[in-house]
Computed example of a mutant assay.
Amino acid sequence: MNEYRFEEIISKEEDKKEYTKAEFSTSVTAEMMQKFYEISGDDNPLHMDEAFAKEQGFYSRVVYGMLTASFYSRLAGVYLPGKFCLLHSVESSFKNPVFIGDTLTVAGYVKEKHEATRTIDIVATITNQDGKKVSKAKILAGFLK
């Protein structure tokens, strides 16, 4: 777990070459899908029924978009800035479907720092194993003491 303090963060606005960034990879499993269903109660057949998903033109069940977006929480809370993060907001959009077994790379960088509020703007993306962007986000993160 990273432990960046506000003072250690370098935004892309400050230094276009040495700005603070982070990334990690994770694979989506059927177990993750089941746990997300149990928490959310979202039983839409696109996520639950492989035959239905195929009828809709997908090769398999589609992973919950919000499960994919939950990796932005890991990016902020573990990697950027990490331990001292207080997540304020995540604005995400979905570009392409994700499927069970996909390996996702979640990456982000600090675009701006706001001294008055001790917050940072993070620009983040999630790409799959084929390099296809599946999601993008703007994250606002603050810092604990």
Score class of each variant (00 low, 15 high):
residue 40 S to E: 09
residue 23 E to P: 00
residue 46 L to N: 03
residue 51 A to P: 00
residue 22 A to W: 10
residue 20 T to W: 14
residue 19 Y to G: 06
residue 63 V to H: 13
residue 62 V to R: 03
residue 40 S to F: 08
residue 16 K to M: 12
residue 54 K to E: 08
residue 9 I to W: 10
residue 40 S to Y: 05
residue 55 E to C: 01
residue 56 Q to I: 03
residue 33 M to C: 02
residue 47 H to K: 02
residue 11 S to Q: 06
residue 20 T to C: 13
residue 44 N to D: 13
residue 59 Y to A: 02
residue 46 L to K: 01
residue 29 T to H: 01
residue 45 P to Q: 13
residue 25 S to E: 15
residue 27 S to R: 15
residue 41 G to P: 14
residue 42 D to K: 06
residue 46 L to F: 02
residue 33 M to D: 07
residue 48 M to S: 13
residue 61 R to M: 04
residue 63 V to M: 08
residue 58 F to V: 04
residue 30 A to P: 12
residue 48 M to W: 07
residue 10 I to M: 00
residue 40 S to I: 02
residue 52 F to I: 01
residue 43 D to G: 08
residue 24 F to W: 03
residue 64 Y to P: 11
residue 58 F to I: 00
residue 57 G to V: 13
residue 51 A to I: 10
residue 48 M to I: 11
residue 45 P to Y: 13
residue 50 E to G: 03
residue 54 K to P: 05
residue 50 E to P: 02
residue 35 K to H: 10
residue 44 N to T: 11
residue 36 F to L: 04
residue 53 A to K: 05
residue 28 V to L: 09
residue 61 R to A: 00
residue 14 E to P: 00
residue 28 V to A: 05
residue 36 F to S: 08
residue 31 E to K: 08
residue 53 A to N: 11
residue 36 F to I: 04
residue 10 I to H: 08
residue 37 Y to D: 07
residue 29 T to L: 04
residue 59 Y to M: 05
residue 28 V to F: 11
